[in-house]
Simulated scan of single mutants.
Amino acid sequence: MASAKKIAIVTGASQGIGAAAVAAYRKLGYGVVATARSIRPSEDPEMLTVPGDLARPGTGAQVVDQALARFGRVDTLVNNAGIFIGKPFTDYTDADYDAVTGVNLRGFFDISRSAVAVMLTAGHGGHVVNVSTSLVDHADSRVPSALASLTKGGLNAVTKSLAVEYASQGIRVNTVALGVIRTPMHPVETHEALAGMHPLGRMGEIDDVVQAIVYLEQAPFVTGEILHVDGGQSAGH
């Protein structure tokens, strides 16, 4: 039997933005299913951790199945898991392509398809939030990133497509498009240069991203939106 408590699934949830999103949804009173390739069990009874590689076919569906088995419903999916490999285009290998498209596209497709199906069956609407990059619409010669643009550009496009397809069923689909966020993946010695890539003159903080996701969660009239959280990067420089 489904609980009355709303349930959110967060991918890439073991650290950084994903872990912060998990904490934010718990603060909102949601039960949370947190998934990542490597994630520790939680002692929180309102949180289920599911280890798994979303690049593998079927993993996303299994995460949704476990959410249903534990909580009986899925209300929100935060597609935070992603891989970024920055190289000149001709230096990319087939393995790079498989890695990036595996998580950024197949991972999105597999888990989103299953989550939306559950939302449709339940009939109480839902919300999908994707994480993209401002490099999609503001390419930067200092950051060669064709695979990021190829995959995250696809997420931007499908956000609008799905938002329109499912608006009449009360399912909203939005995306946050990020500038450079201060996470452990960026060494401290690079921070000054990375800050200079944004008109506001600083890197984004994880909290900047989470606040945007929470805003979208609580904005029932907003769907099909690509919300730039990038210090003005996409506006120009």
Rank of each mutant, 00 (worst) to 15 (best):
A2S: 07
A4H: 06
V10Q: 00
T11Q: 08
Q15H: 06
G16A: 12
G16R: 15
G18R: 00
G18D: 02
Y25H: 04
L28Y: 06
G29L: 12
A34G: 04
A36V: 03
R37E: 06
I39W: 04
V50A: 02
P51L: 07
P51V: 06
G58K: 13
Q66W: 00
A67V: 04
L68K: 05
L68M: 14
A69C: 10
R70S: 10
R73L: 05
D75E: 04
T76F: 01
L77F: 06
L77C: 07
V78I: 14
A81R: 01
F89P: 03
F89K: 06
A95Y: 10
A99V: 00
L105I: 13
S112M: 14
S114Q: 15
V116R: 00
V118A: 07
D137V: 08
D140E: 14
R142A: 07
S145C: 15
A148G: 14
S149Q: 15
Y166M: 11
Q169T: 12
R172T: 05
N174T: 13
L178I: 03
I181W: 05
R182D: 15
R182A: 15
T183M: 03
M185T: 11
H186G: 11
V188W: 02
E189K: 13
A193V: 11
A193N: 14
H198T: 13
L200P: 10
L200S: 08
L200Q: 11
I206Y: 06
Y215G: 05
L216Q: 02
E217M: 09
Q218T: 15
H228S: 10
V229C: 09
V229I: 14
D230G: 06
G231N: 10
